[in-house]
């Protein structure tokens, strides 16, 4: 067992444990804290996969912005004593969930089997560094932020602009949603 394996199991336990405790926790504030643990675990796994930029984004956007927004809203609304209520149709939704998850596991096994990845057959090919991106070529995986920006500005220009528009639409939607109620009460 080398260091990378130990780190993988550590971060996997962190993210899975945080997720399980988040789903099972009674109070939303503790759920948010466990969620932050889980997100940091996933960010560390990104570091292990050598996607450093995505790890930084994960910490900044998820653990920073999104979870702070969650905590604001949790403090804003008064949840009450029975915050840990579970669904009424527990059996039906549990069975439906188990069925869908088993479908997912079967397709996972088929994919892994057909790609020959069972038993550590897949290898982590080393990253080629320093290669300048060429127009028309495939974007190759790189740890540098520069190639990321290059990909965003060339191949993914239209999706980038659409996602900017989506953020604008979400902002306008949130403003409209929170303004309408004030007019109703007046």
């Amino acid at each position: 067992m080398n260091l990378v394996d130990i780190l993988f199991y550590l971060f996997a336990t962190l993210s899975l444990g945080g997720g399980i405790l988040m789903v099972c926790s009674k109070h939303p504030v503790s759920a948010a804290m466990f969620m932050i643990i889980s997100l940091v675990g996933v960010a560390s796994l990104f570091v292990l996969l050598e996607a450093f930029f995505l790890a930084v984004l994960q910490i900044l956007v998820y653990a920073g912005a999104v979870m702070v927004l969650f905590l604001f809203i949790i403090m804003l609304v008064d949840v009450g004593p029975n915050a840990g209520k579970t669904s009424k149709m527990k059996l039906i939704s549990g069975l439906a969930g188990a069925f869908l998850i088993s479908l997912l596991i079967v397709s996972f096994l088929i994919i892994v089997q057909s790609s020959g990845w069972i038993g550590g057959g897949a290898n982590w090919s080393p990253i080629i560094e320093g290669a300048e991106p060429v127009i028309g070529d495939n974007l190759s995986f790189s740890t540098s932020v520069k190639s990321f920006g290059y990909g965003l500005m060339t191949k993914y220009m239209l999706p980038l602009q659409i996602s900017g528009f989506l953020l604008l639409a979400a902002m306008v939607g949130v403003i409209v949603l929170s303004k309408k109620e004030e007019q109703d009460t007046n």
């Binding site: 996607a51 974007l139 990321f148 996602s163």
Partner: peptide, 18 residues
């Protein structure tokens, strides 16, 4: 060794925040 998946993750993060 293809960057497309990572750029997809970037967009998923944007959509999740919205």
């Amino acid at each position: 060794l293809n960057l497309d998946g990572s750029i997809f993750v970037f967009f998923i993060m944007t959509v999740a925040a919205a």
